[in-house]
Amino acid sequence: MSTRILIVAEHDGTRLNPSTAKCVACARTIADADITVAVCAANAATVATQAAQLQGVACVLKVENAANEHPLAAVLAPQIVAVAQGYALVLGPSTTFGKDLMPRVAALLDTVQVSDIMAAESATRFRRPIYAGNAIVTVEVESGVQVVGTVRIASFEAAPTASSAAPIESAQVQADIPTHTRFVSVSAARSDRPDLQTAARVISGGRALASAEGFQILYKLADKLGAAVGASRAAVDAGYAPNELQVGQTGKIIAPELYVAIGISGAIQHLTGIKDARTIVAINKDAEAPIFEVADIGLVGDLFQIVPELERLLGS
């Protein structure tokens, strides 16, 4: 018998977020998965077409409502509940979108949630990190219970594109949509740089950058390497970098090919965010800094000399 899995797509109205392909990849590891992707939007056609291209997706459901223009958890949750009947597993990404929404769905379904799934051993047994990644727990849900989960996107390679597209259907949803929650604005720093969450290379800076101007030297190096820029909490708190650059337990969990930590001490809360990086490079003037315990390549020295030197050596 197949396991029916519903995945809640993340998107910005026009583009499917790469986190959705990671959710599909997670769902595909479950035996006999029968995967449906739900796209909640004011106008779902464009995003639904993209979701239908993902390998492993059997069906895409458009859940359209003018109220879905912005992803408000209180607005989306009752609609997802309305289409979730019959699915053993309801998944969303462990991004701020999914973290906000999925527990609301779980509560309305009167069930439990498994957060940050790093491996699905079956549709009821999962592995997830706890204590900032310092322990991994295997959890089991009573069989017969519908499970809601969020997928730790750094743990999965995005599902590839399929040779043929899955069918797209429109869901007729009867749900009470509340008006008590209203979108006001979003300040997204649009940049031409790669996205931190999906970039193959990331250059991160810490408190040692000492000012917002100091932080600029990282952008120059990042541009030379085609890398995204990240930051420690200390750098964000001090105002050297915007909040969306924070990497770690309470920021973004990333898995780039190359992570370069510059002037970052390596607190456990920061390391949680980079455990899955392929190669970690640390540049720090303190040879005893804990970051060197996890770095594949360490360079002890003053970043204000090393970073410009790297930039020079990388040439144009």
Partner: peptide, 25 residues
């Protein structure tokens, strides 16, 4: 409804190497 069945330490990263300067890096 959620039962923790097993706890494990996370896989440890191997300790890496040190380089002397930007060029060697």
């Amino acid at each position: 409804r959620l039962k923790a069945v097993r706890f494990e330490p996370p896989p440890q990263r191997q300790k890496g190497i040190k380089v002397k300067d930007a060029a060697e890096l």
